[in-house]
Simulated scan of single mutants.
Amino acid sequence: MNEPSTERSPLDIAAEINKIKQETCKIMLTNALEIGKRLKEAKDLLPHGEWGKWLVESVSYSQRTANRLMQLFEEYGDKLLAAGSEVGRSNSSVLTNLTYYQALLLLGIPEDEREKFILEHDVKNMTTGELDRALKEQKQTPPEKEQAKITPLSNHSGDLKIEYQIVKKTDKLTSMPKTAASPTFTTKYEERCTACCQTIADKFQELLEALGQLARLDPAVKEKCRKDASGLAEYMVERLKEWPPVPTTNMTTVETYATHERW
């Protein structure tokens, strides 16, 4: 009687390699989330202005890398790091099979659309390239969105009434009349402007510190980054001089800035 052949085919070996690669990328994601969690903890403990220096000297991370790891933790950490519990498994079943690179790419779509996208596209069995193409196609053909229409109440109390309507992206939108806002709204946006200015000031200090480090490590790279930052600052100054522009359509701020994505 002939014994069954135990010879492995190249297809069998490829399947094993791909499985190992998949598991490795899952481990990478879990470790990235753990690192992101600790980076956030360290950032909260460090004095103002010490964050960039600590990253370079203590863990050899750029701020871009650190921000990406912290964003991964913010977006996935609560669900994936809790996957060992029954609650975690039930809430994150569609996320637990993501690899590190898949999770990074999926940051490009809103959280409330992410799990639906994963289910509809069988992300678990997609390559990174296939996922990237699917996400680009999704962005090119966005679904109809709810758009808010704001009108004053008839009692002229100064309050605003918000109504929602479904609008297609391709529809021609007309400009909306100005409405009188209450002092509450004015205060809200004044506080938001102040907070944004403080954030810009903090980030500018971090930029100066990073440029200082680059000047020591690689003057040529420092000069390139300095020119990029200078160009961005000039662009921001020019935009602030003319902002807001005279509205001709109900274009959102995001759409207005879309032509300047390089920044």
Rank of each mutant, 00 (worst) to 15 (best):
K227Y: 07
R8S: 14
A42D: 05
Y76N: 02
E209P: 03
T252K: 06
S92P: 07
S90W: 09
S157W: 07
T252R: 06
T259F: 09
T174D: 09
H48Y: 14
Q198G: 06
T174S: 13
E242G: 06
G52H: 05
E234I: 14
W54S: 05
V87S: 04
L105F: 02
L69Q: 04
I166F: 04
M126A: 12
T96V: 12
P247G: 09
F73D: 04
K149C: 05
A103V: 02
Y61W: 03
N18Q: 10
K227L: 15
N18C: 09
Q102C: 02
P247W: 09
V167C: 02
F204I: 01
P245G: 04
T141G: 00
Q22G: 06
S93N: 14
K136R: 10
A14F: 13
D132E: 11
I200T: 10
Y100H: 11
C225I: 08
C197S: 15
Q71E: 11
A83Y: 12
Y189H: 09
M176P: 03
S92M: 01
N155H: 10
G84W: 05
E3P: 06
M70Q: 05
T170L: 01
K145I: 03
L135D: 03
V237W: 15
D228N: 13
L72S: 03
Y164Q: 12
A14Y: 11
R192Y: 08
P183F: 08
L80P: 07
V59E: 02
I150A: 14
E137S: 12
I166G: 00
Y61V: 00
L105H: 01
N91T: 05
P47F: 08
A134R: 13
E120H: 12
N250Q: 05
S157N: 12
T187C: 03
P4I: 00
P152K: 08
I17Y: 15
S5A: 09
G52L: 01
T194L: 09
A148K: 15
T141Q: 10
S58H: 07
E16W: 11
Q63R: 10
H156M: 06
K53D: 09
K222R: 15
E50D: 13
P247C: 11
T96K: 14
R89H: 08
D112K: 13
K188E: 07
E163F: 08
W54G: 01
A229L: 08
P110I: 00
T248Y: 09
K139C: 01
R89V: 02
K116C: 03
W51S: 04
N18T: 03
S230K: 08
A148F: 11
T256R: 15
W51H: 11
I13F: 14
E137C: 07
T128K: 07
L160F: 10
L107E: 00
M1R: 00
W263R: 10
H156E: 08
G231L: 08
E74A: 15
V56R: 13
E41W: 08
R262G: 08
V254D: 05
